[in-house]
Write a protein that binds this DNA or RNA. Sequence first.
DNA 1: CCCTGATTCGC
DNA 2: GCGAATCAGG
Length: 184
Amino acid sequence: MVWTPEREDLLKKLWLQGLSASQIARTMDCFTRNAIIGKAHRLNLPKRSPVARSGPKPRRLRAKPSLARIGSMAKASPRLPGQHREGPLRAERSLGFGPVALERGSDLSLQETHSTLMELKHNTCKWPIGDPGDPDFHFCSQNAEGGKSYCEFHHRLAYRPLRKRDEKRESRQDQQDFVKALAS
DNA sequence: CCCTGATTCGC
DNA sequence: GCGAATCAGG
């Protein structure tokens, strides 16, 4: 995936809006959090250091990966063409159980109010709905308690599949069962 | 644990 | 230039 001028613009926009790197990564489904941060720095976007670093990081030679690390590195190996990174958009698109799918014809009583970037607040759910750039792209915007990025439903939806997929591949039915369990 | 941004350096 | 791995924090 390459950085086109359009993607750079969207990154700048979201970064300046105050979205976190991981939120931007999930919104722009094709980049990781690290990629977002790295690009933000190369674009000289304003720093947002919540961490007052106590000075330059000491130089460290990159160690050869241990055998233990090789296993975990395999999980983070580059995606094959057509493969999507983990995250809400991936789930929504490939599994069809994302917010949009839930919104129509579901009895889950999940109320989703439209929210544009300008309306994002620190305490609202930032689960992206639709494709960035689409006129109707918006965020869930339900209350997100406890400083979380998502409402409780979307938080659990967003993070639970990551865990499980690390251990084994989940079937589509497993994912759908999980959504039903969440809603019940 | 959950998360955040910053940095290094092999590619 | 890119971004995974890592670090250093809340």
